[in-house]
Design a protein around this nucleic acid. Sequence first.
DNA 1: AACAAACACAACCGCCGCAGG
DNA 2: GCCTGCGGCGGTTGTGTTTGT
Length: 247
Amino acid sequence: MGRAPCCEKMGLKKGPWTPEEDQILISYIHKYGHGNWRALPKLAGLLRCGKSCRLRWINYLRPDIKRGNFTKEEEETIIELHQMLGNRWSAIAARLPGRTDNEIKNVWHTHLKKRLIINNNDDVIVQKSKRQRNHESYDDDNNIKIDDTKYDNDNNSNNDSLVVSSPPQSSSSYNSFISTDDQNFSETMDDQFWTEVFSSESDENDHNNHEFDFTLTNSNNNVDYDQDMEFWFNVFTRSADLPELLL
DNA sequence: AACAAACACAACCGCCGCAGG
DNA sequence: GCCTGCGGCGGTTGTGTTTGT
């Protein structure tokens, strides 16, 4: 038997904090600080355990917490740091001023993880949520349609994800399983950089399900596959200026 | 409009490492 | 060296909200 949970003690309250409790905690910490979390609730007159007080203060009440949605830059930083540090949320939070480990963890699990997965073959998988799968998605900035995807049936029989194979190191073409609306696709790609879209094929019985193989070339006509994960993430989430990525 | 499914996020749980006795 | 208490951390859950059917 492990140690009993601290909040199971008689009379200690659990669940969401009330504004009154918040105010008591804030006032106490402003006056006396939080030297001893275990003793704090009793001294402050709160029917909470020390852990609960600490969590509430660190994750919600602290004055230096930045509220609101994560910016694109913050999300990219999280992805980068997660590549380096793994699930060390507190270490990641330390590099994102105003954000808490809990918040970052939540964002990762609810947004980022579902959008970006590296499988055993080092393939980059951009996975769509079930809700996303039911809708057509457009990037507000460039109008690229990112729906109508062809899903990888071998690995994802439930059609949950879009698999992008690792770029070949010596081949002159990069085969992608990207499927998109060909008209939107060609309109948004700068011909100077994205010079060719070829061998497109579509299922005659399903006109919403197109598949393209395409070649990526930069302005010097040099194929450039050697991009890091962030690049591919940006490409498939349409969160960056695509042609500039190839410069 | 009602219900179900999916999402978002605050909060809890349990483990671990460290410090002090 | 061992035990205990505490803070900190990461995983998980609970619940309110949003979106889809």
